[in-house]
Amino acid sequence: MDKDGPTPLERFIRGILPENPVYRQLLGMCPVLAVTNGMKPAMTMAAAVAFVLICANILISLIRGLLKPHLRILVFTLTIATFVTIADRFLAAFVYSMSKQLGPYVPLIIVNCIIICRCEVCASKQNVLTAASDAVGQSLGFTLGLASLASVREILGSGTWFGIAVLPSAFPTWVIMLLPPGAFITLGLLLGGVNWIGGAWARRPAKSP
């Protein structure tokens, strides 16, 4: 086990901003773009990803001693597929309309790169506590990314936030924001904004020594 690596707390904080899965690592773009036309589907998706990520990370960390190098990716995907099936059945049973709306994007969590990446980078090498805190941090970061994109798209696209009207009805809603092009362009601009703020933040100490 790597004793010199970041502590569980550091890993937790890293997942939220410095290594944010959406803006920094650019992982798991399919759900990010596809389900963010409203806050409700985005948050449901974030919860499903968080469940799968945390469970898979803990389980992989528990069985890390048994993993064979050439079979590990297969074990990861099968573990993730099992948890995704559980999440999918759960959504279909309790929030049926949301499950209908998310459609095939819930099963697509299986091939979401974030989860495989975290299993490979962290869970298969660290103990359970570290793996769990890493998973929680990463899923909070993912939630943050989804929430920012979904807020912009829902407010501009339909004038509501979580279904509550926030803009005056005189505001012309930008339908394009709810359609595929709006997702690409908004994410591109937000990514540019995050990079710009990050760059300015990194240059800051040099200006005021």
Partner: peptide, 14 residues
């Protein structure tokens, strides 16, 4: 600068 790489790619795909 900030749009280099993935940012401009996403906007073009939009």
């Amino acid at each position: 600068g900030p749009l280099k790489g993935a940012g401009i790619t996403l906007i073009v795909s939009g």
